[in-house]
Design a protein around this nucleic acid. Structure first.
Lengths: 245, 245
DNA sequence: GAGTGGTCTAGACCACAGC
DNA sequence: CTGTGGTCTAGACCACTCA
């Protein structure tokens, strides 16, 4: 029907990239949200007039990028965000064995309060808009090892300020399941700092002692930020490991 | 010659993984070192009795893992280690613009000295072996922002203790070029800590003030460690950023 | 059994590098 | 010119999931 290696025109882009862009568009536009099933390989191939192998290669690339995942016999889905990739992965540092002990979080404060101009600007709200503030403490073996200070757009999580709404360890499960808000990605910046008095009191260290500081901005569809979070952890209990090649 | 989808026997491993393992073996054994050209796709296919497409897929995977890189028209090579992937990437934090200012390093001390038992054990030497100690300071705009304390197996870098041997900013270029030692990979662990007196004096901060601490172990062929390094950087000048999806 | 992805083959033509 | 990797096609059979 159409010439095998015929690029649409003007040489230009490989066909599999056209397919990739098509899928990426469906995701970025919000037409497909995390957890959705995408069209099957043969369907995509027919829709975009390419061979099945080319459609497969496009999907392969997006699977590599972790934007999609496959399930043999069922289909290919849009990835859900995986906070196990967070830089704030816990590693039992001082403990004898090297196994990653479970971190348990408790909500220690939550309220609606007016946001600072900086926060509101990033969240894309009016400069004096009310925000939901949530403070949570992470424990390992009864010992407080981290604190997180989190600000949300109050309009996207109505009712969450009520004390009787339980916040699970995996905050985002609640957001996705209860509010149906697609959490698409997050950006994290890791650095070190001295403990402020509040943090020091919670973690049981002296003010000024070193802590790891993680800033996170969480995004929903259309590149909108819905949460800004600062986490601080005891330096003797957190570290991050990689391999360079 | 052999049945198309016939797995060697016992169902077992996909053919492209067999090819991957073969190449990985060549690399890990030191038979191929970083920079070497690997056999071409058709050659690999013939050697291992698979179709060219399968060989290509195996190479694709290894390229994705960054163990190989392709150069169209020339061939496929074994990757050189890329320390730009280091967690200690510099980000001009306090500076107005966001451009990554260049970090300049100077060697401030080097000598042969007996290693501690812990160091010698990791480096695989006798418990009291002499090690090469190198101390370097990193500057940005004349300001010291990081220090690195490094220990090397003295036997692999003979003569490096002499003051007249210039150490370039990219230490590893010297190791690879002058000594021909393949630097294969490195492991890094990032955490925070308080500045020790020596570090504090160099960085111009008060002892105990927070610094980012990066531990690195550098590997050559056959999984042998040749260097153990600790880097400490001013917390207000270093950070590490990622995206979670 | 129908549909999905997973593996594998066997070719085609193109673009680039180096002689 | 030859050899390399880069793209693309058109099929085969297998393994899994679900109705």
């Amino acid at each position: 029907m159409n010439r095998p290696t015929a690029p649409g025109r003007a040489s230009s882009k490989p066909l599999y990239q056209v397919v990739e862009d098509h899928i990426r568009g469906l995701i970025d536009s919000g037409e497909l949200v995390p957890g959705d099933l995408i069209p099957s390989e043969p369907q995509l191939a027919r829709q975009l007039n390419v061979s099945p192998g080319t459609a497969k290669k496009a999907i392969d690339n997006l699977v590599w990028e972790q934007r999609l995942y496959r399930h043999q016999g069922k289909g290919t889905y849009v990835s859900k965000i995986d906070f196990n990739n967070s830089l704030f992965r816990f590693t039992t540092y001082g403990d004898a064995a090297g196994q990653p002990t479970r971190l348990h979080k408790e909500t220690t404060a939550r309220r609606i309060e007016p946001g600072t101009p900086a926060l509101c600007s990033k969240l894309g709200t009016a400069a004096d808009a009310a925000l939901l503030y949530v403070e949570r403490v992470g424990y390992v073996d009864e010992q407080a090892v981290m604190v997180e200070y989190s600000h949300w757009r109050a309009d996207v999580v109505p009712g969450l300020e009520r004390e009787d709404v339980h916040i699970p360890d995996l905050f985002y499960a609640l957001i996705v399941d209860k509010y149906g808000i697609p959490v698409v990605r997050a950006e994290e910046t890791l650095t070190a700092g001295g403990a402020d008095p509040q943090t020091a009191a919670i973690l049981g260290i002296r003010p000024g002692e070193p802590v790891l500081v993680l800033n996170r901005e969480t995004y929903t569809s259309n590149n909108r930020i819905i949460e800004i979070r600062v986490s601080k952890g005891r330096a003797d209990r957190f570290s991050y490991k990689t391999e360079i090649r």
